[in-house]
Amino acid sequence: MQVLDKQLEVGPEPAEVGRARRWVRAELLRASRGHPCPACPDESQTDTLVLLVSELVTNAVVHTGRPAMLHLSARGPACTVPVRLEVVDGSSRAPRPRRAADEDTGGRGLELVELLADRWGWQREGAGKRVWCELDCASGRDTPHDDRKVPASY
């Protein structure tokens, strides 16, 4: 059973990253009001999801210069389902995590995704690709990996 299944088309402008962050936060809030426990992201988990969206959408916008599609989903009625984020873009170039130097102002996006998400990956999608990540949102405030989650301030 699908509890949350939403899409947002994202334009190729950097300002779209902020719009995507606000949209995900609003959709998670709306879903939590409509169901007793759609995916159970608490405030910290929601902040983490917003940061993950920021990184995935930024990569799509910066590295392709084309529109992208953001997909937000959570399956099942149980409170232990993962929330899945996917960004489909028009570039077939594989995402590659970089190791940024201390003074670099960029290059940490996929490193953050790798650190914060419980799972992530990518696959070819037509002429482009789909980059996805999942965050397990367990029931209550005790999540399995809280010690490695870093909340974002957006």
Rank of each mutant, 00 (worst) to 15 (best):
V3H: 10
Q7R: 10
E9A: 15
E9H: 12
V10D: 00
G11H: 01
P14M: 04
V17K: 12
A20F: 05
A20G: 02
R22Y: 10
W23T: 06
E27N: 10
L28H: 07
L28Y: 06
L29G: 12
R30D: 07
A31C: 10
G34L: 07
H35Y: 01
C37N: 14
C37T: 14
S44W: 01
D47S: 15
T48N: 05
T48K: 08
L49V: 06
L52F: 02
V53C: 13
S54W: 08
L56K: 09
V57I: 12
V57N: 07
V57S: 05
T58N: 11
V62N: 04
V62R: 12
H63K: 02
A68D: 03
M69S: 11
M69G: 05
S73I: 02
R75M: 01
R75A: 12
G76Y: 00
G76H: 00
A78F: 07
T80I: 07
T80C: 11
V81S: 15
P82H: 01
V83W: 02
V83Y: 01
R84Q: 11
R84W: 00
R84K: 13
V87S: 06
V87A: 05
V87Y: 03
G90Q: 00
S91I: 01
S91T: 04
S92I: 06
R93Y: 01
A94H: 11
P95T: 02
P95Y: 02
R99A: 15
R99C: 14
G107L: 08
R108S: 14
G109I: 10
G109H: 01
E111P: 00
D118A: 13
W120L: 08
W122Q: 08
Q123S: 10
R124A: 14
A127Y: 02
K129Q: 10
C133H: 05
L135S: 03
C137E: 06
S139H: 08
D142P: 05
T143Y: 09
P144N: 03
